[in-house]
């Protein structure tokens, strides 16, 4: 496999990872008004996880933790309005003027989206963990 054979690919993936994360962050915040959003951001991070798996470099391992964080965020946003007597999933929108960024408008949907991102990333971590153990791991043992 690619692991351990192609330092070029390894270095490239290592260098590209932070950039890809930046793209993910952009997509995440852009989602409210432009194409993007939590799901897309999760997919980009998932692609990073996938590439790092291929190259055999460090990547998130604990899928359950991603799921836990994601589910907690999503449920919190869903249930919090109930405490205030509002309907389930009711959104709170905040509009603030921040230094550097200017007028920023956002809402609790952003947190909800962050939960979705975490869950999507968790899915990829889980799948590649499984694939890795199943395929690459065996390969290594045989070689």
């Amino acid at each position: 496999m690619i692991r351990g054979r192609s330092p070029v690919v390894r270095s490239a993936i290592r260098a590209a990872s932070p950039l890809a994360l930046l793209v993910a962050a952009f997509l995440f915040f852009a989602g409210h008004n432009q194409p993007g959003g939590g799901f897309a951001a999760g997919l980009v991070i998932g692609a990073v996880v996938a590439l790092r798996t291929v190259a055999g470099i460090g990547r998130p391992q604990d899928a359950a933790r991603w799921f836990a964080v994601g589910t907690a965020l999503v449920s919190a946003v869903a249930l919090a309005p109930l405490l205030g007597g509002e309907p389930l999933l009711d959104q709170v929108i905040v509009s603030e003027t921040l230094p550097l960024l200017g007028k920023v408008k956002s809402g609790s949907a952003l947190v909800f989206d962050a939960g979705v991102t975490a869950i999507v990333v968790g899915l990829f971590v889980a799948v590649f963990d499984g694939l890795d153990a199943d395929e690459l791991g065996r390969d290594e043992v045989q070689v």
Partner: peptide
């Protein structure tokens, strides 16, 4: 209600 212009995403998250 959703405070966003991307209709698809507002549908999804709000």
């Amino acid at each position: 209600e959703g405070g966003g212009n991307n209709l698809v995403n507002v549908i999804l998250t709000d």
